[in-house]
Design a protein around this nucleic acid. Structure first.
Length: 137
DNA sequence: GCCAACGTTGGC
DNA sequence: GCCAACGTTGGC
């Protein structure tokens, strides 16, 4: 089991939308590091869903339904996508400010490289985020 | 292979 | 809307 943090702008595709749809293709990633992270995802892996630009907070938990396959939205290049499904919303959103102020989360990509859209979390980091949100799986 | 220029992302 | 940080591109 691996843990991840995925980012989305909520006015493009929000966690609420994912809950409504039940499943979505996580496509459009055009960054090699993020792509490689997508390819390392395994079915059943858990993802913290973070809202960038608007909200600036972790809001939910998603899971990998389908491991990587070629991204049909890519007109050229070697890109991949996965299918995601909702698990549950966080009991309480964890803001970027809270994340940044927690030393246990000082090493996550969100803090170290704010522009990476798909990044791994350690189990400890994942657990810390769940605890801060008051959420149990 | 280096580096300047440019485009994109995302927080503020 | 601005700007800093990062990644990519392309000329040399």
């Amino acid at each position: 089991m691996n843990y991840w943090l995925i980012k989305s702008e909520p006015d493009v595709f929000s966690f609420e939308q994912l809950c409504q749809d039940g499943r979505t293709r996580w496509d459009g990633v055009r960054n090699y590091q993020a792509r490689n992270n997508l390819r390392a995802m395994r079915a059943g892996d858990l993802c913290i869903y973070y809202h960038s630009n608007i909200g600036l907070a972790a809001v939910g938990i998603a899971t990998v339904l389908q491991e990587y396959y070629p991204d049909p939205t890519a007109e050229s290049g070697d890109w991949s996508c996965v299918d995601m499904g909702p698990v549950k919303p966080l009991q309480r959103a964890v803001t970027l400010a809270e994340i940044k102020s927690n030393p246990e989360l000082g090493n996550i990509g969100l803090v170290r490289n704010p522009r990476l859209s798909v990044m791994p979390l350690t189990f400890d980091e994942f657990s810390t985020l769940l605890r801060m949100s008051g959420t149990q799986l």
